[in-house]
Computed example of a mutant assay.
Amino acid sequence: MHRLFALFIALSASFLANAPAQAEVHVLTSIKPLQLIAAAVQDGVGSPEVLLPPGASPHNYALRPSDVRRVRDSDLLYWIGPDMESFLPRVLKNRTLPTVDVQSLPGMRLRHFAADSASHEEEDPDEHDHDHRPGSLDAHLWLSSFNARVIAAKMAADLSAADPANAARYSSNAQAFNTRLDALDTRIKARVAGISGKPYFVFHEAFDYFEDAYGLKHAGVFSVAAEVRPGARHVAAMRERLTEMGKTCVFSEPPLRPRLAETLTAGLPAKLAELDALGSDTPINAQGYELLLSTLGDDLVGCLESL
């Protein structure tokens, strides 16, 4: 990771050659998980902002005029990429300051949706504007602590180039972040060890990065995309799977529980619960990203242990 940081330093020096040096760099991220990573890197120096308000979908957010101004004026802007925030590319065409789509960073470990991830035969193409088809990129990449390290290294390099006076602080913050994530990975693996064989279901295929990192796997998914209504055959198949499984957990994502949840689980010993991939209620501080991941683990384990 030190070599990765050195690589990003070299690239960022050129990337930010025309950016004015200043005491506090105005960082804007598209979604909260990236803001939490930036908060760890900027700790003690600055406070990153986020574009999407709580509860907003990163797939189809409608930008307000004030949002467009923030996108235009921020010193550094970080977003996942066109596979996640499909509303941003058009606005970014008019941006002249440094912009980073983290899905394109060197060293990222990316996943793609599997051919058997869910039924697609009855999806309405007008129901969503992002690609969850088999083989397409799974853009929920922030749920991998490995990827978070890569993103933090890039942020530290960019901030160091834009604000050399605080370069040492950004570098040490990124190193401390890596150390804390090493310890966090160990804690989460120990936390989920007891439930790794228990079946559970998710409404949105958003957690594969987290599951892959900690040896977990959902037994079924009702819809690969949060905005896609699963077809009747898929609903019937999932109801049958739930019946076969007996006691299990079915996880949706806040802020809304799909109306289908009660229909699918009615009369079955399945428990409804939530997993928040965006960390909507997570405080914004240097440890916020770690809390996002640890809360996912706790919520997953808590439901399955309660059965």
Results as ranks from 00 to 15, higher is better:
Y61I: 06
L159S: 03
H218W: 02
A139D: 04
L77A: 12
A152W: 05
P199M: 01
H128N: 02
L97K: 15
G135K: 03
N18T: 13
V50F: 03
A62Y: 05
N173W: 06
F203W: 09
H120V: 10
G297A: 09
N60D: 14
P254R: 08
G135Q: 02
V235P: 12
T179E: 14
L260H: 01
S280C: 06
A153V: 06
V100H: 00
L307C: 07
A266F: 08
T263R: 14
T243K: 15
G288A: 13
S171W: 03
F87N: 09
R187C: 08
E290T: 15
P255Q: 11
G135W: 04
V250D: 01
R90I: 09
A225C: 14
A232S: 09
E262H: 02
T263K: 15
F207N: 05
A270W: 02
K247Q: 07
H204K: 08
S66T: 12
L159N: 06
L105V: 07
K198V: 05
V25C: 10
D75G: 12
H26G: 11
P98M: 07
H140I: 01
P53Y: 04
E240W: 09
R169D: 07
N18K: 15
D276A: 15
K154D: 14
S160A: 15
L110P: 02
T248K: 11
M238I: 14
